[in-house]
Amino acid sequence: MSIADRLITEPLAIPRPAVTAPFPRIDTFDKALTAPGGFGPRLRACRTAALNFRREFAATGRPDSVRTHDLISLPYPTRYGLFRAAISPTPFVTISNRLLIVRWTETDGTPRTLLFEPSDHELDSYTPYFDDMKRLAPGPVRGVFVHEHTDVLTACRRAGVDPAEVDYLAFDHLHTQDVRRWLGTTSPQPDISPNQPVVAAFPNAKLLAQRDELEAMADLHPFQRPWYQPSTFVDLPPEKILPLDGSVLLGPGVALITTPGHAMGNQSLVLNTDTGIWAISENAIATECLTPDQSRIPGLAKAAKSWGHEVVLNANTIETAYEQYNSLVIEKTIVDVSQQDSRFLQFFPSSELTGALLNPGTAPTFTHRAIRHG
């Protein structure tokens, strides 16, 4: 069955909690993202807002610790990841998806733990796009291109994190995500728990997602549908979902800011660490996509200069390319310069470009690989 055969659906009853997450709102970007005059004036406004946010955010403090854990490396179309830029003939690049474990202490002494990008990669193949990929490259062939490093629960165990201690789960957006095993379900699930509701692996965790994206999943546009698994959200317990209405400060040196464009409700994790400020998202797949003039990937610097672009988008779904460009400039303006190589910025792709012999001409010039703080 092709993607097209699976895409015509009726609207789904996705849980729509009326509550609003109890975090301080960050209104710095509200006017910039909707400034009058079109996307050009908005870009200028976004850059100014990002400078203002950077100064304010640095004063909020720092989290207790940040650790990253490799989950899975997999193929991804070059034409998406290096949009309009790379000239390599290889159809795929390799990207590595990573989990971030962020811990902080509230002013009243309450400890908090956030899992950012806790992808249950054993179930992501139900996403229509990746389901087709799996059918085209089954079994041993898939094993050549896909490398599973670890899973979320094992990563937590290695980090000394009890699943009951996890307060929040969040993603930069909900493409490919299936969180039933993390949050539990209100009824049996034919594919993973046919006889009883799924028991939550993280019994006290709540999903933080932008309300816009949660509501959009109920009735997706054809351009969006290949990348989502909306049916897996139908039986999630509504009380386990905390919708966000814009940018919020989660804790000292920990924020989720709205960065729309790649997906409706896209958001970026921003961290203030020992090395300065970081931004984490999938708006780009390599930090050099924010400074393309420093890239040695064939074609990247030349294409960016030719087009007059200061960033290179990750463009598998261009819901609003202008907004995604502006959002990436926000991230570029917020972050600090890498202490390992001053040509590059502390933008950490949630799925980072990784060199592979099977993908000649796409090896990154520089990779962060991990964030270590505290």
Rank of each mutant, 00 (worst) to 15 (best):
P222A: 00
V270Q: 05
P41H: 01
N52A: 10
N204Q: 09
L220A: 01
F233L: 14
F39C: 08
L328Q: 10
L271H: 12
T150N: 11
L153E: 05
L169M: 12
K302M: 04
R103W: 05
A205K: 05
Q346G: 01
P22G: 03
F39W: 13
D274K: 15
S231P: 03
V248R: 11
A35V: 02
M217Q: 04
R157C: 06
A200F: 06
K305T: 13
F347K: 02
R42M: 14
R55H: 10
F171A: 15
V335G: 02
I371E: 02
Y76C: 15
D191W: 07
I280H: 02
D27A: 15
P89K: 00
S88H: 06
A363D: 14
H368M: 11
A303N: 10
I330A: 03
D120I: 08
P364Q: 02
A159L: 01
L236P: 12
N316E: 14
P194W: 04
R372L: 15
V141M: 10
G361Q: 03
M217V: 09
N97K: 09
I318M: 14
F366T: 08
W104N: 09
W278H: 03
Q267L: 01
L74V: 07
L256S: 09
T94R: 14
T94M: 15
A85N: 06
L220E: 05
E310T: 08
I101H: 08
P91E: 12
I72N: 04
D120H: 13
Q210A: 14
D191N: 11
W104R: 11
